[in-house]
Design a protein around this nucleic acid. Sequence first.
RNA 1: UGACCCAUGGUGUAAUUGGCAACACGUCGGAUUUUGGUUCCGCAGAGUCCUGGUUCGAGCCCAGGUGGGUCAGCCA
Length: 564
Amino acid sequence: MEKNQDPAVKNEPVSFIEQFIIDDIKEGKNNGRIHTRFPPEPNGYLHIGHAKAICLDFGMAKKYGGKCNLRFDDTNPVKEEVEYIDSIKEDIHWLGFDWEDREYYASDYFGKLFEFAVDLIKRGLAYVDDQPADVISAQKGTPSQPGTVSPFRNRPVAGNLDLFYRMNEGEFGEGSRVLRAKIDMASPNMQMRDPIIYRIIKSFHHRTGDAWKVYPMYDFAHGQSDYFEGITHSLCTLEFEVHRPLYDWLVDQLRTSDYRPRQIEFNRLNLTYTMMSKRKLLELVQEGKVSGWDDPRMPTLCGLRRRGYTPESIRKFVDLIGYTKVEAINDISLLEHAVREDLNIKAPRVFGVLAPLKVIITNYPADKVEEMEILNNPEDESMGKRKVPFSNELFIERDDFMENPPHKYFRLAPGAEVRLKGAYIIKCESFKKDEKTGQIEEVYCTYDSSTRSGEGSEKKVKGTLHWVSARHAVEAEVRLYDRLFDHEDPSGQKDDDYRKFLNPDSLKVLPGCKLEPSLAPAKPLEKFQFQRLGYFCVDYDSTPDHLVFNRTVSLKDTWAKIKK
RNA sequence: UGACCCAUGGUGUAAUUGGCAACACGUCGGAUUUUGGUUCCGCAGAGUCCUGGUUCGAGCCCAGGUGGGUCAGCCA
């Protein structure tokens, strides 16, 4: 192996998993071949936790010249649906990974798996148990007490064989019999106490239809599927750690050479203020707590995509948090940092006023319109300029005017001057207020014609505001999102249901927002920085007649901190 | 009265494999800025869960504790 391919030589820290891979290559295991797999069960949408696994599985393969298969773990026909398969593939591609032609299904191996089970029976390593679930469960013992042996454990091979075939022919009802591996009922590891490897299920399978009446359990499918596909590194999450001896035991019964897949476990992704349980996310959808799997508040990949997250930002985040064996809870603010960093480079800046307040420039001709040329992105001048119309009636943000401003308020106030970004410096001369409600209705200003942007005016003011010409503005609905839960760990509270922590203010819909006219043709998923406010993305609900934007994330707001 | 896994600033990770505990985010200052954004500079913040041991030297090795997690689905 060439030294310069070894990241350790370059002193880049690598995860313990990557170190295993490097060591395995050095030792020439499996002829130095690297082959991983991403094995989702098609029973729900992918979430950001899956992104962590995807980045590892595909990432390691790519980095070390190997391959990564996509394999649907479809061993349980009662839980799985075709609906999910397409979304899973779409999400993986969106994230930036590709399995080429290697799209597999555990159900592809039902035949081989059945043969293997038959083989185990013949070797006296598996038996049919006629007892009901509760009896088998009771005989398993407890973690601190050994199990007891099933009365069917020593049934002769011929009887087991006959029954197993008849189980698959549909002769027996669901739950009436199972096939068990004969390992060790006294093992300190519960997984090894004669685990069930086949059960009778009479549901329609999305790929194999009615062909099978018995289906392999996860433990009897996963390692073998890895083996059939030539997987070298089977990376999964920590809860499968205690399954590893069983994984190895089964592979040992199967293998005929030095090749063997190796299971390595890493920590799951946990994020503050949300949860990853597929079951609970499904409940949120079914109970209408969110609008769907792709609700922009969901931690699903389709939700994050709709929210305006980029694949690059998610990959960056995953890279930042690393892979260890510690059960960590990652701060959502790190994810937000990752999108801001990415969007700062990519998103064109525009003006959008969310809570409009009318400003009238009293010394600007009512019939005059100037096209102000404004840089699309100061971070990247190659993104060019755009023209924004300026006139005597404008909208500014309500927050940008105060009748009685506090100390250090740099925005508009009676007698104060501010710059309108890309246009002129204006001075507030007076304002109109509804005496009943106290609401400011209009602000009257004068502009200084010598301060037009780009014309070299020396005049400096502290504050710069975004604005939109009233006459030219396009209307939009803007949806502001906050965390879905107001508890850091909503699903980790023993005494409280996670629903109790649903944040009632997680969605705020603002109708009647005023945007600069260049935004009129914006299409779903297009991303912008609304200057001074945050990053926004066009929603799928948006039409030319009714623009809808989602706020991905706000800009950092030091003024908000000063106010506190 | 089991087996297995884990423990480093607020959070997430690192520590050239036994040699001055570092990085990112966050926080707090300051500079720059026609975004209170960005960028840049800087401060503070852990002595590595505890007790022993080995060693010239331990975050790292050993022993024993403590705390947390996983496992008793015919789910994955």
